[in-house]
Design a protein around this nucleic acid. Structure first.
Lengths: 196, 196
DNA sequence: AGATAATGCATACGTCCCGTATGTCAACGA
DNA sequence: TCGTTGACATACGGGACGTATGCATTATCT
């Protein structure tokens, strides 16, 4: 064995986070038995308590991991767009689409807030809201959008899009509802743009 | 005793709903022990299981009661306003304010969706969204707002306002955040209005 | 009206799951 | 090499939920 200590520890942490993430994202936080998913990872609850304190601690770690991934994806989307405004719209669309993914929906928008409280307060601001905020800041500097508090706008968009996603995901006819939701959402975004 | 059966049964149901509502609204759904709050109501879990099937069934009943109250309050607010537009804005403000109440926030916006899934699908549409929808329909008929799908708009507003409320409620400085939130929210509402 | 069925609700029991306290073994420092 | 630290497992106790069962009162039937 070459790199013994730190590597093994990181591997254990990683296994626990991965196992918890899978369980929380599928059957949900409340239904996920710690004995079960730690066992599937070849470990026991002892390891979990050692590394994360308790079940909520693991959920928090899972959420931070997912939040980082979402932030990364949002940055890529906005960077790939030809204009800043287009990048912003794409970013918002991507946000809705991500909220449609069962794992993200369940962990980030349902169980997370229910167990840990308001997402916004976990860190000094979660990455995915900060990403929206930055995009808005740039647009504002460019004079492309109306004079509005960007963090507030980012949170409005965050709230609106996550609800749109929930609506779509639980609808009997997701296709049709998605059309309505995205159209309405884009209309709302358009209203942010300075009438030129 | 004059009215024995039905009345006693309704009383029992009412006691259970009231006790559950108090427990869920304060310590939260997960932390509320059925033995505890049924005991406080002078009953046992037996009564709860008989009337509501399980803990989730009681939560659903509690939510329906609160939803009905919220709908009633929203209708009163919009009816009291001098103009329809003003009534709509008032209604939205009232919605945010209600979302700031700890009981509503906890049960309707946190535990409810987490335990029962998307609120929107519980009934054919919850009353408080339907109320917003109706107001928007009237405004649209009056030509006061832009051409937008009213249910979508109602849900956008619902999502945005509940997130605003969460943000405010969990902020270090609720007063200051409230100012920013309400200002941004009204800007969003204003953008719905037809530029005349 | 008396017997029987049904219902509202309580009690008893088993099970699962979480948190803590304790134990053990490997790795690191001296 | 030996003591110590830390990573992780095991053992234990408590609490909460769901179900099965029991009882008493009310409704129903003849």
């Amino acid at each position: 064995m070459r790199k013994p200590r730190q590597e093994m520890i990181a591997e254990t942490r990683g296994k626990l986070i991965a196992a918890g993430r899978r369980a929380f994202g599928t059957i949900g936080y409340a239904e996920a038995s710690m004995d079960d998913f730690t066992g599937e990872a070849g470990l026991t609850r002892g390891a979990l308590y050692h590394h994360f304190g308790d079940k909520r601690g693991l959920l928090q770690a899972v959420i931070m991991e997912i939040d980082a991934e979402m932030t990364e994806r949002l940055n890529e989307v906005s960077a790939a767009a030809p204009t800043r405004w287009q990048g912003f719209v794409d970013e918002c669309s991507a946000y809705i689409e991500m909220a449609l993914e069962p794992e993200i929906q369940r962990i980030m928008f349902r169980d997370g807030p229910a167990v840990l409280g308001d997402i916004s307060q976990w860190q000094n601001t979660p990455g995915c809201i900060a990403a929206l905020s930055r995009s808005l800041d740039r647009l504002k500097a460019d004079g492309e959008i109306i004079d509005i508090d960007t963090e507030t706008a980012a949170r409005l968009i965050n709230g609106a899009s996550s609800h749109m996603a929930l609506w779509i995901a639980n609808a009997e006819n997701p296709e049709a509802v998605s059309k309505r939701a995205v159209a309405g959402f884009k209309a709302m975004l358009g209203s942010l743009r300075r009438q030129q």
